[in-house]
Structures are given as C-alpha cells and as structure tokens.
C-alpha cells in the first residue's frame, strides 16, 4: 500500500464511470512508481485533455493538465528546462494519436526523456463516444453509427518506427504486465512508450454489445496475443488480435536533453557534461 503516497486521496473518488479501466491503469502507474522508487518531489506528470488526462488530478506530485493533444510538447519544455526531473505523460488515444500525433512522433524521434503511457480505450470518452484513430474497424461509435470504416493505427509500431527507445503494450486485464512495463519505462532514460488497452463500457461497450465491463476485460483477454505466441501463429490466426508485450528496447540512442547538456558543456569548454 506504499503506492498510496502517490495519490491525492483528498480528491478521490475520481470522476471516471463505474467500470472504466482508467483507474486500473492509474493504479498500475502508481504501483510502477513505487516499484522503481520514484521521487515524487522530482517528478512531473503531464496530461492533455480527455478522460484519462484527469488522472493528474489524483497524483500527489507536480502535475500539469494541458491543452488537447499537446502534453508531450509541454513535457518537452519541462524536460529541457529541468533535465533532472522525471517527466511522465499520461494521455488518451485520441489525444496522442489524432490531435497530438505530430508531437508523439517527434518526441519519439528526438528520444526525449519522457515516459508516455497511452490510455487506449479506442474512443473519445469525454465527448461521449466518437471514434478515434485507435477505434478498430467495424466497431460502432457515436460518429460511426454504421460501423467504423477506417483502419486503426498500430501505435506501438508507429512510435517505434518514429524512434522511441522503449515500446510495450498491455491491457487492463493484464495488470501485472502493465505494472512491469510501466516500471521499465520509468527506469528507461530515453523516450519510453507503454500503450494500455483500457475499457470504456459506457460509450464503447454499450454500442458494441459489451456494456458489462467484465465482458470488455474478457474481450481483451481473448484478443491479446503475446509477442512470443504470435511468433508461432499464422497470419490468419492473428487477424483481429492485439499483440501485447515488449516490442523494443535499446539503450544505444542518446537521450535528447542529455545531448543538449553535452552541447552546453562542450561550448563552455568544461568537459563532457554533467549528470554522468
């Protein structure tokens, strides 16, 4: 229960719907913070706009609730101004992959020292259930009443291709994996990205015959395939499934704020930078 120190308990209960998965993800985040022993007075958690972005209201540390899609850009400023601080971004799928997609790929490309957790419920919950870039094809939303025609992003592959140096995916059904991946992401120096599938029974579930949150968790369990399992499966068996696990991890790319500090040190002729 040590992780409770990371919560502003005076502001609970949270505003999320009954059955919403965001509390599970937030729980995993604070347990991961506890596991890696994060210093809550040297950590800034940044969010954008959307249901998941309200998570920062409940975290007992420096928190920044920004504009829609821009959390990573705000976080970039914080990290560059104070490279010694731990900077974490919590954001939804619409926030990160649609309006904020540009900041996502460029934060990844720079290998900015930020841990980014994507609460992927495949829907815009705060505005009552419109489709997002992560809504799977065929499912119904408030703006896809006949079933969604677009393909969804594989956000982990996108972010990896853009240059992220730690990439993993989990679901709210797979709580232990989620805690472990977030913990590893928090311990990683460069841009780390963890996508967590989380259920929105209120808007996604009800329109897709999964109004019961337990059915949505069941759905996650059935859809999820680990990277190891997937290697042994045929392409047709993988159709409609979601890969979970760690996709990518490298320490070989320099973290951006460190590179900039090295530049400052080089220009001042004082050697090769601080913080080594």
């Amino acid at each position: 229960m040590e992780e409770l120190r990371f919560l502003r308990r005076e502001h609970l209960p949270h505003l999320w719907c009954a059955g919403c998965g965001h509390g599970i993800v937030l729980g995993a985040v604070v347990r991961a913070m506890d596991r890696v022993g994060i210093d809550q007075d040297r950590t800034v958690v940044v969010s954008g706009i959307g249901c998941s972005s309200r998570a920062v209201g409940y975290l007992n540390m420096d928190t920044l609730h920004t504009t829609h899609g821009r959390a990573l850009a705000f976080a970039t400023g914080i990290k560059l101004a104070r490279p010694d601080l731990h900077v974490v971004v919590l954001a939804g799928d619409g926030d990160l992959a649609a309006i904020g997609g540009n900041h996502l790929i460029h934060a990844a490309r720079r290998n900015m020292g930020i841990t980014c957790v994507c609460f992927n419920n495949g829907i815009y919950g705060m505005t009552s259930g419109q489709y997002s870039p992560l809504t799977p094809a065929g499912f119904r939303t408030a703006t896809a009443p006949y079933g969604h025609l677009e393909r969804d992003f594989d956000l982990c592959r996108l972010v990896q291709a853009a240059g992220a140096t730690y990439v993993a995916r989990s679901t709210t059904y797979h709580v232990h994996q989620t805690i472990e991946y977030v913990a590893r992401a928090l311990s990683h120096e460069g841009f780390s990205f963890v996508e967590v599938l989380t259920q929105c029974p209120t808007y996604f579930g009800r329109r897709n015959r999964m109004a019961d949150p337990v059915r949505m968790l069941e759905w996650f369990r059935q859809r999820a395939v680990t990277v190891a399992q997937a290697g042994r499966m045929k392409p047709e068996e993988l159709r409609g499934r979601v890969l979970i696990g760690e996709f990518h991890r490298t320490e070989e790319v320099p973290e951006y704020s460190r590179s900039y500090r090295d530049l400052i040190a080089r220009l001042s002729g004082e050697g090769d930078g601080d913080g080594r």
């Binding site: 504009t67 850009a73 400023g77 104070r82």
Partner: peptide, 21 residues
C-alpha cells in the same frame, strides 16, 4: 529547440516557464 510546429513551440515555452526558466 525548433519544435515540430507552432503549437508545440508555444506549449514547450509554457512547460519550461513552469519549470522556473
């Protein structure tokens, strides 16, 4: 830093200012 767009540069400026710079 040259950001990826104008919106992001305004955001980064606010983030840095909140960090005391």
């Amino acid at each position: 830093i040259q950001m990826e767009d104008e919106i992001g540069s305004m955001a980064a400026v606010i983030g840095a200012s909140l960090a005391g710079v």
